[in-house]
């Protein structure tokens, strides 16, 4: 029998979630899952409009990127009819399977008066950009979404 080599699956991915549009947030959560499936650790830095969606109360209503245009309404309907898991549930599922650490951006949190206790418990800590960039230094990829 042919035995294929076992691929060494390690490494690290850093994601910056900036957009609060749900299609982008979903892309980030799905990439997180893909990284975990490859045994990679994931650091997620959540800032600006994305961070508002981690608020326990008062999170904005879900929107799609402007390019969805006329398709937006139909797309939202499809996502709800097909019971697509939310981006946050997808991140949480990935965190159950692998090493996923979510950080909130200190600058935006300060600006908007958001405290760690206002945010979903998936948020490990509120950190500054320098600390995050230091984490991304030795990542195999860093994506701004």
């Amino acid at each position: 029998m042919l035995t294929l080599p076992v691929v060494n699956m390690t490494g690290k991915v850093s994601l910056i979630l900036f957009s609060g549009n749900v299609d982008r947030l979903m892309a980030g959560s799905i990439i997180t899952s893909g990284a975990v499936a490859n045994d990679m650790d994931v650091n997620v830095f959540v800032t600006f409009w994305a961070l508002l969606h981690l608020k326990k109360t008062g999170a904005p209503a879900p929107t799609l990127s402007p390019e969805a245009g006329a398709m937006a309404e139909r797309m939202m309907k499809i996502m709800s009819e097909k019971k697509m898991p939310s981006w946050l549930d997808t991140i949480k599922q990935a965190a159950e399977v692998g090493n996923v650490t979510v950080y909130a951006c200190a600058m935006f949190a300060d600006m908007m008066g958001i405290r760690k206790s206002d945010l979903d418990p998936i948020v490990r800590d509120v950190i500054g950009v320098s600390q995050f960039v230091d984490m991304s230094r030795d990542s195999n990829m860093t994506l701004f979404i």
């Binding site: 799905i30 899952s33 893909g34 975990v36 499936a37 097909k82 019971k83 697509m84 898991p85 997808t90 599922q93 990935a94 159950e96 399977v97 692998g98």
Partner: peptide, 17 residues
Amino acid sequence: RGSYCPGPLMELIKAYK
């Protein structure tokens, strides 16, 4: 069934672990 990528794979990995 009815769950989209990467849902089924993530459930498989969870069961594996």
